[in-house]
Amino acid sequence: MSHPPPLKAGERAFNLLLLLFSVGVFYEAYRISGFDLPNSAGAFPLLLGAIMIVTMVSILLGQRHHPRPAAGGVLGEWRQFLATHFPLPVVLFSLLAVGYLLALPALGFIAATALFLLVAQLCLRRGHWLSAVLVTVLITAVIYALFTLLFQVYLP
């Protein structure tokens, strides 16, 4: 008899979160117009909420025989989750992305973008500082020219 493949680290927790979210969707849908007329504003959203709950329960039930992804209980799985899905480049890039969005209103598009591109390249591609500076200048200039002159869109 073949054994089901192990779950990914954090998969069950993520699916449980989605189930909770689905219950929230159902509740919010109920708040629109309750179980009113079948063509009320809340009828279709209620149906969607119910579908989300049923499918997520079905997914979780289907996974009940799958082995845990890591030894060491919840803590071991949490460690594996961080190691698998949040390697250093992902953590660094996430922080840089948030920093970039926060810097945009303060520094303006050109300065924030140039800074973000430069730091991101230096973090992800260690040791290539000269090419990082050149690429940063080139990309920032091209994006600025392309979007302001050709597409004529407002930049942040």
């Binding site: 945009l104 973008t113 591109l117 991101a120 992800l124 591609r125 990309i139 930049l155």
Partner: peptide, 20 residues
Amino acid sequence: LPKAILIPLILVLCVVGTYS
């Protein structure tokens, strides 16, 4: 094109696209 250039570039384009 190295991913270290491509990935930050994608994010910048996403920001510009959404803001516009």
